[in-house]
Simulated assay, not measured.
Amino acid sequence: MVSVRLSHLKKFSCCLALGSALLASSLPASAAVGFWQSIQQKGVLRCGAATAAPYVMRDAKSGEYSGYFAELCRDFGENVLKVKVQFVDANWDTLVAGLQSDKWDMALGLNQTPERALAVAFSAPAQDYQVSFLINKQNPKMEGVTNKLADLDKPGVTFAVMSGTSQDKAVTAAIKKGTIMRLPGNDETRLALMARRADVLVDASDTNHLFALANPDWAKEILPVPALAKQGVSFGLPRSITEADRDVIDIYLTQRRATGEIDQLVNKASMEANAAK
């Protein structure tokens, strides 16, 4: 009786071992050893990069990447993972597909949207994208305004926005008392503000930030409350990444954001972008 039971026990143990081996062999290598550990074994972190100042910029002559997302990717790879960092040329149409097809390990500067979340995972936001306002500080109409939307949404206040954009959609839904001036391009909206044909320039916060830094004597950026079209801007990651591995990049970004280091990188990149124009 005992020998029979031992025989069954041995067969059961063999089946367990075989099943475990088959399961392990069916898992991707990155899942078996951890996503970041697999990159450390390869010695290279591949960063998919589509250019858009101040997120990612590329010098036409040297091919060197800069911009605050490029700097974060380089720092994370070299100083956290202790590996080389390789930037892979991409465009905004291929960033998500490149993650899915393993052409790169992280995608730089992706806005968090529900549609993208069906295909990829996101890190914690490095910064927030939102629609912002730019005003002329010398305009008497703007005296004493705060970041409250109600301070600006008044009769006699004109908002200049590029027609048909997401900014146009957001400001149209928010502004009830002011006048909206829809123009064909960014140059026209900026000229309208500078000539005081418009009182408020409506654009993406990163674009307005660049313009405000280039014109500190008269330009002031306002992030309205309540926020308009606010989205986190993050690293895109493979959707299969584990929660533990995502914690690694999330902790890195959260700490750097809390200390103001990312804001410093944004300002540096914005000034570089203005200098290059």
Rank of each mutant, 00 (worst) to 15 (best):
K10G: 01
K11T: 08
F12L: 14
C14R: 14
L22H: 03
L22R: 04
S26F: 00
I39D: 03
R46L: 11
R46P: 02
A50V: 09
A50Y: 01
Y55F: 14
R58M: 11
K61S: 15
S66C: 03
Y68A: 00
F69V: 03
C73L: 02
E78R: 15
E78D: 01
K82M: 10
V85K: 05
F87P: 03
A97D: 10
W104S: 03
M106W: 02
L110D: 01
N111Y: 12
L118I: 05
A121I: 02
S132C: 08
F133E: 01
K137D: 01
K137M: 05
E143Q: 14
V145N: 03
A150K: 15
D151L: 09
L152C: 13
K154M: 14
K154A: 11
A160L: 12
A170C: 08
A170P: 05
A174G: 11
K176I: 03
P184Q: 03
T189L: 09
L191N: 12
A192R: 04
A198P: 02
A204H: 07
D206P: 01
T207Q: 10
L210P: 00
N215T: 04
N215K: 14
P216W: 08
D217Q: 09
A219S: 08
I222E: 00
K230A: 13
Q231T: 10
G232Q: 12
G232C: 10
G236C: 07
E243K: 14
E243S: 15
A244M: 10
V248E: 07
Y252A: 05
R257T: 13
R257G: 06
I262Q: 07
D263V: 03
A269Y: 02
E272V: 14
A273D: 02
N274Q: 10
A276V: 00
A276T: 04
